[in-house]
Design a protein around this nucleic acid. Structure first.
Length: 574
RNA sequence: CGGGGCGUAGCGCAGUCUGGUUAGCGCGCCUGCCUUGGGAGCAGGAGGCCGGAGGUUCGAAUCCUCUCGCCCCGACCA
């Protein structure tokens, strides 16, 4: 393709609305333009990149035995009522009525539609397993879209759904998808980790998220430096080391702590570490109070707490001062665990603590030398807190690292949640009716492009991994008015094109500096320059965008060299 | 939805507090000359309902009211 004929509206200056690198660069390089909040047009280069990712996704999904189909975007409200999600999904589901006053919605995901399709068309275990996917525009009316393609309201997603007859079969399918996802993101040239994840509102029994590692990621993930263990913060566990030998239990001691409420102030005043204090928090779970006990320096992980209580995170919040007083009789800020009548949950860590400090249920007093089961009891002891970098890996005991990630893929083993809700069943080999065992598998295609840029850029622009670059080579004619140079450039362009190499020919009548700047901005992996050194020595130069290394070689050798470079970069993993 | 900020030419901004000629600047765009290895130079030019509506005033980009849109921070997610 010729640069002069393509719509590539590059910008010298960064639009003020863009905050993160991928958003700024996608705008500056002319890949996308915003239509309204969270809704973007993909220009030719943006679309080319999207198509590259899609192609890899298709190849790997097909290779793993999945089949592509395409489901409707507009979906009847009745189907969502049948699954129960019409009520549950919330305002993120964009709803509208058509001319016949039928309730409808734009598909944010397709569990209902696919399950409906399968229940009417698949009836026997002999037809299973089935694994179906589509690549399509999704719409989710996000509360706050942000960061360009990172969190749009309209975005391109690959969503896949599997149907198995047995648990073992479903687990095998899940494993196959896990492997396929590994291959997909590896082929995209991304540094990523698969992490254990909470199943959230989609529901199901277990799941993994695929995280592209980048400092600007919206998620915090925990990865082990010593083994393969990795998990989302919401799910991350840590070793619960066996309790040290129980020391002598000291007598409770009431001590005045004038005006000290916050953990840091209290422990400083008492001359102890926050690790020697237990704090008492009150939450409202479905509007009923529960107390949570935690070591002073630890933080509650809301998702874990919600799971321990069996409630949805939407129905879980910190109690306000009035609620604390009304339900415990103690003002906020003075509440300790002794004598509580509401349900009490304690974090695992408490089993290892002895002679710790707590609040005394009285203004300006704390108690020293408190002990679990001697001075107070709790109903539940489990993992309720955020893992920290001081914790040890639950799998190998190695040290843990907290890092940021961008969620580009998510796989779930759903089980029978939707098949039961929609009465989607088949007959097993005994002639008994069984619900399909399902899995679902998503990849944010447009987000993957943003994540790739987030992970691969420098001050001059994007640096695409070759497999997902919009073009593999950008060929610069540095002197379009020079006939010899133009003839040489065209010859090379033709040769590469015949070999199936994707070349963007910069034939614009611009000065070299502008072409260099644009080439860097677009992030195309190899830049080939035909100019002064061709006139002087018959040589062209090949510059690697990522490393900046430049290779000069005779025109006659350049084509073969480039074909070689591109093909080796495209070699699939292992 | 709560908190913060912003809407002036395609992009980046000044002007608004303290109302007063024809609303400016840089980049980009058009024409010509010139130039050609890291976003050149000169000359000429086009482009604005100052987000929208209402109000105050002799007079509003500027003050007031309402509204719409956008961005950032939080709870949600591919």
């Amino acid at each position: 393709m010729r640069f002069s004929q393509l719509l590539i509206p590059t910008l010298k200056e960064t639009p003020s609305e863009a905050e993160v690198a991928s958003h700024q660069l996608l705008l500056r390089a002319g890949f996308i333009r915003k239509l309204s909040s969270g809704i973007y047009s993909y220009l030719p280069l943006g679309l080319a990149t999207i198509r590259k990712v899609e192609r890899i996704v298709r190849e790997e999904m097909n290779r793993a035995g999945a089949q592509e189909l395409l489901l409707p975007m507009v979906q009847p409200g009745d189907l969502w009522k049948e699954s129960g999600r019409w009520e549950k999904y919330g305002p993120e589901l964009l709803r509208f009525t058509d001319r016949h006053a039928r309730e409808s919605c734009l598909g944010p995901t397709h569990e209902e539609v696919i399950t409906d399709l399968i229940r009417f068309n698949v009836h026997s275990y002999k037809e299973l397993p089935l694994n179906l996917y589509q690549i399509q525009t999704k719409f989710r009316d996000e509360i706050r879209p942000r960061f360009g393609l990172m969190r749009g309201r309209e975005f391109i997603m690959k969503d896949g759904y599997s149907f198995d007859a047995t648990e073992d079969g479903a687990d095998a399918t899940y494993k196959k998808m896990h492997e396929a996802y590994h291959r997909i993101f590896a082929r995209c040239g991304l540094a990523f980790r698969a992490v254990e994840a909470d199943t959230g509102t989609i529901g199901g029994s277990f799941s993994h998220e695929f995280m592209v590692l980048a400092d600007t990621g919206e998620d915090t993930i925990v990865i082990c430096k010593g083994c393969e263990y990795a998990a989302n913060m919401e799910k991350a566990r840590c070793q619960t080391p066996t309790a040290p030998a129980t020391p002598a239990l000291l007598a409770l001691e009431k001590i005045e702590t004038p005006g000290k409420k916050k953990v840091a102030a209290v422990t400083e005043f008492l001359g102890i570490s926050p690790k020697e204090l237990v704090k008492t928090l009150v939450y409202m779970a479905e509007d009923k109070p529960v107390a949570v006990l935690l070591r002073g320096d630890h933080e509650v992980q809301t998702v874990k707490l919600a799971n321990a209580l069996g409630v949805n995170t939407d129905n879980l919040r910190l109690a306000d001062d009035k609620e604390i007083f009304d339900t415990t009789g103690t003002p906020s800020g003075y509440l300790g665990p002794i004598g509580l009548t509401i349900p009490v949950l304690a974090d695992n860590e408490l089993t290892r603590m002895h002679n710790f400090a707590i609040r005394a249920n009285a203004k300006n007093f704390h108690l020293l030398n408190a002990n679990l089961n001697r001075d107070f009891t709790v109903q539940t002891i489990t993992d309720l807190r955020q893992v920290t970098s001081e914790d040890r890996c639950p799998a190998c005991g190695g040290s843990l690292e907290l890092t940021r990630g961008i969620e580009v893929g998510h796989i779930f083993k759903l089980g029978t949640k939707y098949s039961e809700a929609l009465k989607a069943t088949f007959l097993d080999n005994q002639g008994a009716e069984q619900p399909f065992i399902m899995g679902c598998y998503g990849i944010g295609v447009s987000r993957t492009v943003a994540a790739a840029i987030e992970q691969n850029h420098d001050k001059d622009g994007m640096i695409f991994p070759l497999p997902i670059a919009p073009f593999q080579i950008i060929l610069l004619n540095l002197s379009p008015k020079d006939e010899a140079i133009t003839a040489a450039t065209n010859e090379l362009y033709g040769q590469l094109g015949k070999s199936g190499i994707e070349v963007l020919l910069d034939d614009r009548d611009e000065r070299p500096g502008s072409k260099f700047k644009d080439a860097d901005l677009l992030g195309i992996p190899y830049r080939v320059m035909v100019g002064k050194s061709f006139s002087e020595k018959g040589e062209v130069e090949i510059r690697d965008r990522a490393t900046g290394t430049t290779l000069s070689l005779p025109l006659a050798e350049a084509g073969a060299k480039l074909i070689n470079l591109v093909r080796s970069a495209l070699a699939p993993p292992e």
